[in-house]
Simulated scan of single mutants.
Amino acid sequence: MAALMEGTLDWFFETVAIRDLGKMIDQAELHYLSFGIMGPIIELLGSVYDTKSFLTTENVWNGRFNAALARIPSLRRYQRNRVGKQHDLYKHMRHGMAHVGAPETGVVFTQRSDPYDGHRHLNKDSYNGTRRLILVCEDLHADIVDAIPYVRGDRSRKKDLDMAFMNPRLLPDSAPVPTLTCSVSG
């Protein structure tokens, strides 16, 4: 594989989503924290399927997350845990980790070294009367890694993805610098 230009989406996939997140899980054993990163990565993968700018400030996050589950082969097995379901992964994993730093009721995080649940990815059980979905971080990460080549082949229609990850200092002089603007009225 040719050297990847720092700051591109392909660089992000190889460096952050595959290598660094893999180190976080396998070497640093930061299993719990890895779920806080994997949720937004799933959302990013699903962003290739809408017509909005990647940098939109509209409420598209849930739709992007669930588009990834519905359309990417390695993530389809999570589809039964989409919006409105008892174990809605957007609500219980991604939203919980982003807003309160913990999964919401109905989902439990673990890792393969867990002697009880480490081999039970996507199985359900009851704990203190609550039905919960078991997520094993190494298995979810493997499914995300498997999704990346699929999304690379599908992203041709989403022209602003590379620009979203680009460090403006690395852009050629003739390239437009991506900016986000907001206005305040009143």
Rank of each mutant, 00 (worst) to 15 (best):
C182K: 06
R112W: 05
D10Q: 12
A147M: 03
V145G: 05
A70M: 10
M38C: 13
Y32M: 04
R155N: 13
G7I: 08
T179S: 02
I41N: 02
N128G: 09
P73W: 08
R82E: 03
L9A: 15
D146V: 01
S34K: 00
F165N: 00
V100G: 12
W61Q: 15
G22Y: 10
L45H: 01
K159D: 03
G7A: 10
V83W: 09
H99C: 04
P115S: 12
V108C: 11
A68R: 00
T130D: 13
S47E: 02
M1G: 14
L89R: 09
R157T: 10
D154T: 10
M97N: 06
Y49L: 02
I18G: 05
E138L: 01
G39H: 02
R155I: 09
R19E: 15
L171F: 03
N167S: 08
S113Y: 02
H119S: 14
L69T: 07
F165D: 02
V108A: 10
H95N: 12
L75D: 05
R82L: 05
D114V: 13
W11R: 00
S47C: 12
M5S: 12
A17D: 05
V107E: 04
E43I: 07
I25K: 11
M163K: 06
L33W: 06
M1F: 06
R19V: 10
N59S: 13
Y127G: 08
V136W: 08
Y150N: 06
P115E: 11
V177S: 01
Y32G: 06
H87P: 04
P176D: 12
V184R: 08
T56D: 00
H95W: 06
K23D: 13
Y78W: 13
D162I: 01
G129E: 07
N167M: 06
R169T: 08
C182F: 12
P178A: 14
P176V: 15
P149D: 05
G46H: 07
R120Y: 08
W61V: 03
T15H: 15
G63V: 03
A67I: 00
S174G: 11
N66Q: 07
